[in-house]
Amino acid sequence: MERHEIEAFLTLAEELHFRRTSERLGLAQGRVSQTIKKLERRIGVPLFERTSRRVALTAIGEQLRDDLLPAHRQIQRAVARATETGRGIGGTLRVGYSGPMIAETILKAAERFRARYPGSDVQIQEVQLCDPFGPIRSGRVHVQITERPVTEPDLTVGPLVLAAPRALMVPDHHPLARRASVSLEDLAGASLVTITGSVAPYWLDHHYPRSTPAGRTIPRGPTAMYWPELLTLVAAGGGVSPACATVERYYARPGITWVPFHDAPPVEFGFLWPASGETARVRAFVELCPTVA
């Protein structure tokens, strides 16, 4: 059997309608009919029962369909794998993330990515807040999802993946811990625990502001290199610290109360990759991930 005969037969076996089959294959209806008749003459028996009202598979037609389908699907997968590999989508993609909530999204996207692009793999790596652009610049990751803003000339800012409300982490004994919500103005009366390291000043000032919207100074407290260290400082009474509210379920611990902000902008998480590193593999993952998020 030739390929066009197999495709015509299997499509008609699925549609059981000559017009719909011809539309799916992009062929004239008469061409489909001729192909099926030629195939039936070669096999020597009818494969379809035709009346003015319906088309149905014969017993031998059903047998042929069941025998052909697995092989045909395997051929389709092989062609798809070769095509995607040729486009540069096959292979390993290393994806960075800055928090457990984003890791969950990436893991779900990775599973769908592997299914859609056979021969591909996705490896994930946590990116520390103290060095948010180090792994992407060194090539340890090809693309990452991180907190905005990102304004770096050597990095391309991709689409937004998700946005989440902010909360303030405060020691249990702090006066703000008894509040139903807090305001950005409340930060003027508290010591702010912040992240230090290779952090862009504009990023630091966005997430750990130096003044309130009304212009009041926000006192600076101790600094931390890593997230667990920051949690320890807050729990020990070293100060307060803003965070993405939805990660409380990952980091809830004794000594810290999470109080929602009622006037702070959301934390936005988006893609970024090297300006010189936009590959077909990166683009394919970037396009797929927001549908999962």
Score class of each variant (00 low, 15 high):
residue 136 I to L: 09
residue 225 M to E: 03
residue 248 E to K: 01
residue 48 F to P: 11
residue 20 R to K: 14
residue 235 A to N: 01
residue 267 V to C: 15
residue 91 G to C: 15
residue 61 G to C: 12
residue 243 A to S: 06
residue 50 R to G: 02
residue 145 I to G: 08
residue 47 L to P: 07
residue 246 T to D: 14
residue 10 L to G: 12
residue 122 V to M: 03
residue 60 I to V: 15
residue 55 V to M: 10
residue 159 P to I: 04
residue 189 G to A: 10
residue 186 D to F: 03
residue 2 E to K: 14
residue 117 Y to P: 06
residue 96 G to L: 09
residue 197 G to I: 06
residue 33 S to C: 02
residue 218 I to G: 12
residue 103 A to I: 01
residue 163 A to E: 15
residue 239 G to F: 07
residue 157 V to E: 00
residue 11 T to M: 14
residue 76 Q to R: 15
residue 21 T to S: 14
residue 63 Q to S: 13
residue 199 V to S: 01
residue 20 R to Y: 00
residue 132 P to L: 05
residue 182 V to Q: 08
residue 47 L to C: 07
residue 291 T to H: 09
residue 204 L to E: 07
residue 205 D to M: 05
residue 97 Y to D: 00
residue 117 Y to A: 09
residue 210 R to M: 12
residue 85 T to S: 13
residue 134 G to F: 02
residue 20 R to A: 08
residue 112 R to S: 08
residue 284 A to I: 07
residue 293 A to H: 03
residue 76 Q to S: 11
residue 66 D to W: 11
residue 55 V to L: 14
residue 72 H to L: 03
residue 53 R to F: 02
residue 42 R to A: 05
residue 265 P to C: 00
residue 75 I to K: 15
residue 12 L to A: 13
residue 288 L to G: 04
residue 262 H to R: 08
residue 271 F to M: 01
residue 287 E to C: 03
residue 96 G to Q: 08
residue 115 A to T: 06
residue 286 V to G: 04
residue 214 A to W: 04
residue 263 D to I: 02
residue 289 C to P: 09
residue 183 S to Y: 01
residue 277 G to N: 01
residue 20 R to G: 04
residue 28 A to S: 13
residue 154 D to R: 07
residue 25 L to R: 07
residue 202 Y to Q: 12
residue 239 G to C: 06
residue 151 T to W: 14
residue 121 D to Q: 04
residue 44 G to W: 03
residue 291 T to A: 11
residue 152 E to M: 14
residue 5 E to R: 11
residue 254 P to A: 03
residue 26 G to C: 10
residue 182 V to T: 10
residue 211 S to M: 08
residue 55 V to S: 10
residue 206 H to I: 02
residue 183 S to L: 02
residue 270 G to A: 14
residue 87 R to Y: 12
residue 38 K to E: 13
residue 2 E to V: 13
residue 57 L to C: 07
residue 227 W to G: 08
residue 54 R to G: 01
residue 198 S to N: 10
